[in-house]
Nucleic acid binder design. Structure first.
Lengths: 192, 192, 192, 192
DNA sequence: CATGAATGAGACTTCATTCAT
DNA sequence: AATGAATGAAGTCTCATTCAT
């Protein structure tokens, strides 16, 4: 039951931070949604800032693990690797919708501490290293990795924001199309 | 001098809201940065919520005008129109960096009122109608416009976030590359 | 202890509102006198306006109950009933001096909500119905009840204002005299 | 035009203080109603406190003068003198309704300075001296003058509060009746 | 003289955090 | 361990007062 409460708090905080932002969310709101007393939060987390940072790190690490899971290690078929990455991102967006929302809405937040920033950077490094590899093999166009990330991750992030809003309906077809668009965007156009 | 203060308040608010978010920004912070007394803000704006909404509407309308300005009206060359749109977005991102930051960080905020949402929607409609047209002429791939927007605007938005962060350096070359990527992403790949 | 604080807040508020008026009393003043933190007031009362209205209703209901308590129900001896009413008013003025002060100083206040006004009206209706009865039995002179109330309640209210000020000393003799004066004022003078 | 503004300010302040109380009235409210700039008030009155005190003194002096005007000086017919006093009070209540309201709602206010209190006392002394005289001649019953004042002035004050509220309609008949009641209340009952 | 824009002290109120139960 | 009543620092906003025009 103890870890139960911790999890409930993290879940409630994740949802609320995602909806209202860190500063727009109050500790009583979190306690209410987690169905615990306000004081209980402080048995598990030092304070609000610690909570948000631990949560952020948690979410990013999970995202990272999802991305790593079963990544084909042969560096040859980069489009297959891309497909894997994109599929994993979609998987995470689906299964952990509020985690993705929370990450994206707080990745540039002023409350992130160095650990959080560093873990987020490590996470992005995974994607960067994939892209670097693709550039090395002349499959992915030669641009700063962060620019490529903007295109792929920016699109992905915005896409799921619209899906959450209900502006877009998440269909396999849509996802496949967006993946193709992103691949077209960053890969050398030679495929015919 | 009177409009002077109003402008100073709007500028300070735009910057701070962009940096710290609506809830993370306090009225005294705004007053300090605008170099006015705290009470002065309330001579020009009813309250914090009104301020952020007027500001948001202001920024979106300006962005919209920048996009409209000199848009080629011949519907023939859609890539040229795309170039125009993208260039205007870049122009806005450059000249009004903090306006773009503010818009992007608050476009989904819980504090936007109906007017703000509606104006933002109108703004997106300009882009949507361009995309619809492109689909009609079989130049742009057949996907929901909002999905296409995710790709182009999502990429653009994320790109300038990284540029503001200093993670990416804004060079003409970079911008041209990203524009090409986006065009490749959404246009029928037949160009040869 | 919980109701303790609520009571302490109500008591402090009653005294201060009576002394300084609603607008002249600040929440910190109330908190100080009640020996609670400023925020504590808001655990018990939604806001200052709610507080003053609940308090007003409380005081009026108590006053009303005091007046009702043990009222002789035989409609025959109206002077005896008058004596009862006046005695009860005096009892209230003595035991709940600051409640009376608060009521009288806020009965026409712009901050009273409809419930408060309605409860105060109900209270006055008790006195009115007594007077109506007296007029029916030809014991009390034929004047609008509110005019009779002005004479009796107006005198009573002013009297205790002077007593609180220290301008008058409250003695049994004084009270008996005033009661007689009021009775003489409103009763048909024929009794001999 | 200069004294014009001063008068306009005093009139506006008198009305607003009467309606909303000293602390419930703001200087901009007064300026608005007086149709002068907010700063203009400070050309005529040092500050809000000075304004309310000068105003109070003004009103009380005027009331006093009205009462004195044409007072029959023969000490013989005390009921006639009473009639005169009561009539004058009524005259003031009619012609200077908001002045009476202001006086009565601020006579016990915490913002009155010593001068104001002293002037109000002088005013009451006029009534007191009349009553003392009446007691000396054995026409008015032997009670502390302030108790007699409670009865007469308290009734009068409350009566006009109800008239202002619209709860009572001011008719010559009503006024005559109330006067008689008051006279009955305080005079030796020998008149038949 | 008159104004009203500007100010900042201080009001009401919220909320992160503590602590007695 | 869990709670939620209590707190007071800090936020939003008002308003008496000043001063440049």
């Amino acid at each position: 039951m103890a870890q139960n409460k911790r999890e409930a708090i993290l879940k409630a905080a994740m949802e609320l931070f995602g909806e209202l932002g860190y500063d727009g969310t109050t500790m009583p709101m979190i306690a209410d949604r987690a169905k615990v007393g306000a004081g209980t939060i402080y048995r598990y987390f030092e304070n609000k800032e610690t909570l948000v940072n631990l949560l952020f790190q948690d979410c990013v690490v999970t995202f990272s693990e999802v991305l790593q899971h079963g990544l084909p290690q042969n560096n040859q078929d980069l489009q297959e690797q891309f497909h894997h990455l994109f599929s994993r991102m979609v998987e995470f967006a689906r299964n952990k919708a509020s985690a993705l929302n929370f990450i994206d809405s707080h990745a540039n937040s002023h409350i992130l501490d160095d650990t959080s920033k560093s873990i987020f950077n490590d996470f992005m490094d995974h994607i960067r290293s994939y892209l670097e590899n693709g550039k090395k093999y002349n499959i992915i166009i030669d641009m700063p990795s962060d620019a490529l990330i903007s295109i792929v991750y920016g699109a992905f992030s915005y896409l799921y924001r619209l899906i959450r809003n209900g502006q877009l309906k998440e269909t396999p077809e849509l996802l496949q199309n967006v993946e193709e668009c992103c691949w077209k965007a960053i890969s050398k156009s030679s495929e015919n």
